[in-house]
Design a binder for these strands. Structure first.
Length: 256
DNA sequence: ATGGTTGCAACGCAA
C-alpha cells in the first residue's frame, strides 16, 4: 500500500524528533507538513535525509511554512496559487511517483467577519481557480493539509457551540463543498461515512483529554484516485505524548 | 470554559 499523510506540526524545530519517530514507525511514502515555522535556510534537511527521506519546502520566519517529505524524488514544484502573490508560505505542490501532491495550509481566519476571515475567503477563491487549473494538467491529484474547515457538523465535537463560528461557517463549508464539486473526494469521509473523528484539539481548553476536537485536516483524492484509497485514519498516538502538536497526522493508504 | 495553552521571540501576535 502507498501511504500518504498530512500533519500540522506547529513548529518543525520543536517537533523534529516526533516527525523522525513518526517516519520511522509509519514509513509513509509521502508526508506533507504545515506550520513548519522555519526558514528554508534553517530547514533540517540532513536529519530528514538521514531518515531516508527527501524534502521540498517553502518556509518563512515565525509563521506558516509547508514541506513535503517523500521516499522518492519530487518534481514540478509550485509554491504559489495562480495569480496570487502572497508572502505567507502556505502552498507547496509537487509531482511524486506520478501523483500530483498539493500541500496546503489554509488560513485560520481568526473569527467570522474579521479581516483575517476575509483573507481566508479570498484565499479559498484563489484556491478554487488553482485546483481547476491543476486538475486539467494532472488527473491524479492528492490535496492535503490543514484546511481549517470542519466540513460538517459530524466533524465537530459540539456543533451548537461552534455554530457559524470560525472553521464551521457556511461560507467556509461552501468553499469546501466547491472543492468536492470540481472533482475531489474527502477520503476519510468516503471510507467512514458516519465516524466522528477529529484531527485537532485546542491546547487552550485541554481539548484532547475530553476529545473536544474538530476534523479540519483533510486528504482529498481526485476522481482518478479515490477508488484507489483503501484506508483513511487519524493517528492520535502522538497527540497523547508530552509536548504534542495540537494536530494529529491524517493518513490514507492507496492501492495503486 | 468567550477562557485557556503553545510557539516564536523577546511583546504581543497567531493559532
Amino acid at each position: 500500500m502507498y501511504k500518504i499523510a498530512t500533519w500540522n506540526v506547529n513548529s518543525l524545530r520543536v517537533r523534529l524528533p516526533r516527525v523522525l519517530a513518526w517516519l520511522d514507525e509509519n514509513k509513509p511514502d509521502v508526508l506533507a507538513l504545515q506550520e513548519t515555522k522555519i526558514t528554508d535556510a534553517d530547514f533540517p534537511l540532513e536529519a530528514i535525509q538521514q531518515a531516508g527521506y527527501q524534502a521540498v519546502f517553502s518556509g518563512q520566519k515565525t509563521y506558516n511554512g509547508v514541506a513535503i517529505l517523500s521516499r522518492n524524488k519530487a518534481s514540478d514544484i509550485t509554491t504559489d496559487l495562480l495569480e496570487f502573490e502572497d508572502p505567507q508560505r502556505r502552498v507547496l505542490a509537487a509531482v511524486i511517483d506520478n501523483i500530483r501532491i498539493l500541500d496546503l495550509y489554509i488560513p485560520n481566519g481568526e473569527s467570522v467577519g474579521s479581516e483575517k476571515y476575509q483573507y481566508k475567503l479570498n484565499w479559498l477563491s484563489k484556491l478554487d481557480h488553482f485546483l481547476k487549473h491543476e486538475l486539467k494538467k494532472h488527473p491524479k491529484i492528492i490535496v492535503l493539509g490543514d484546511f481549517n474547515i470542519a466540513p460538517a457538523d459530524i466533524d465537530v465535537h459540539d456543533p451548537k457551540r461552534w455554530h457559524e463560528r470560525i472553521m464551521c461557517s457556511t461560507p467556509e463549508r461552501e468553499a469546501f463543498k466547491a472543492m468536492l464539486n470540481i472533482g475531489f473526494h474527502d477520503a476519510f469521509r468516503e471510507l467512514h461515512p458516519a465516524e466522528k473523528t477529529f484531527s485537532w484539539w485546542d491546547y487552550r481548553t485541554y481539548g484532547f483529554s475530553q476529545n473536544l476536537g474538530l476534523r479540519i485536516d483533510h486528504i482529498l483524492a481526485s476522481d482518478a484516485l479515490i477508488s484507489h484509497c483503501k484506508k483513511a485514519y487519524v493517528d492520535t498516538a502522538l497527540r497523547k505524548e508530552e509536548r504534542p502538536s495540537d494536530h494529529a497526522p491524517v493518513v490514507v493508504e492507496l492501492k495503486l
